[in-house]
Design a protein around this nucleic acid. Structure first.
Lengths: 176, 176
DNA sequence: GGCTTTGTTCATTTTGTATTGAACAAACAC
DNA sequence: GTGTTTGTTCAATACAAAATGAACAAAGCC
């Protein structure tokens, strides 16, 4: 036993699956992304995955993630899928290793842009059509109520338009 | 048992508590705010309450809310508390009625401003201090790792600064 | 004083969402 | 071909967040 252990330690097997926990500074950075993730209404595992990739000096394979973050294959796979779609992560070929490795795409501009466009914009767009339909419903209403409701819907249209205007602006400033 | 059930069904209990459901157009507007609420990571009841107040021609008391939206006193009370703190709702005196009535504050600028300042900004602010502390943790690290981690933290600082810059801008454009 | 109305708080229950893990598929090695 | 590694999907489970409702407090009324 002691022999075996010693052998393991001595062997320069740098590439063995050293399931090393994240270092303290890594844990901190991961935590920052976990908070951000929750703030944006995403699962914590997402933040953990992106965070670890962000602070890791080299690309990591999926089982590096499951080992170091102690999460299931399912979570890792789903999380990476999401991050891939978002363009927050890119696949990297590592010579002599069949597994796909990932590294964090660390450009705030593209990240935020994609997120806003895919997760926020649709809601706003959908809203505009809705308002047209809702306005139809006002027809059979007593005059007083119709007037008030009409004003409110006009107001919502304006809110929607302003919100749309903001998005590109946000992306622009974040990218500077 | 059967009798009781039949009685319940037959009784023309229209006025018992004329808990008039929201009209179709009101239901639609409420739904818009429910979605928004979820998008911002807030409970659906919040959206319902604000939505109904927003589309109601006159101020409503708490039991109007519990009846029309079919939610508990607890939810209504908590929801109103939150909305009051946010400044999204204001209390109105109604002559001859002891109950406090509420109306929606319908100014996007102040609403969004308050929300961003109270719910988002703190996270960003907290982040900056954190980064200083994290940087300390880098000292005992091998040169190569330290260099990479250092770059990443610098990057996070810049992200944080840019995000801060965006907030006032958002508020400004939303208010126009 | 006691009785009623209005509103809040908080422990419990319910609901919704994230995570897990097992079954499956695909790509490779031999 | 068989066995192994890598990765995905999805039904079951665990967990976190929201809603409930009962107990309580405060304020008005008679």
């Amino acid at each position: 036993m002691a022999l075996l252990k010693e052998h393991d330690a001595v062997a320069p097997v740098v590439s063995a699956h050293t399931a090393s926990r994240p270092a303290p500074h890594q844990r901190e950075v991961i935590d920052i992304f976990v908070r951000l993730s929750r703030l944006l209404g995403q699962p914590r595992s997402l933040g953990e995955i992106y965070g670890l990739l962000f602070i890791s000096p080299q690309p990591l394979a999926m089982d590096d993630l499951t080992e170091r973050l102690e999460l299931s294959k399912g979570s890792a796979s789903q999380g990476l899928k999401f991050l891939r779609n978002l363009g927050a992560v890119r696949a990297i070929e590592v010579p002599g290793d069949r597994r796909v490795h990932y590294e964090a795409v660390a450009e705030l501009r593209s990240l935020a842009g994609r997120f806003l466009r895919e997760k926020i914009e649709p809601h706003l767009g959908q809203g505009e059509e809705r308002l047209d339909r809702v306005e139809q419903l006002l027809d059979g209403l007593p005059a007083e109520q119709r007037e008030h409701a009409g004003r409110r819907i006009t107001m919502l249209r304006s809110w929607s338009r302003n919100s749309r205007r903001v998005l590109p602006l946000v992306v622009k400033v974040l990218g500077e």
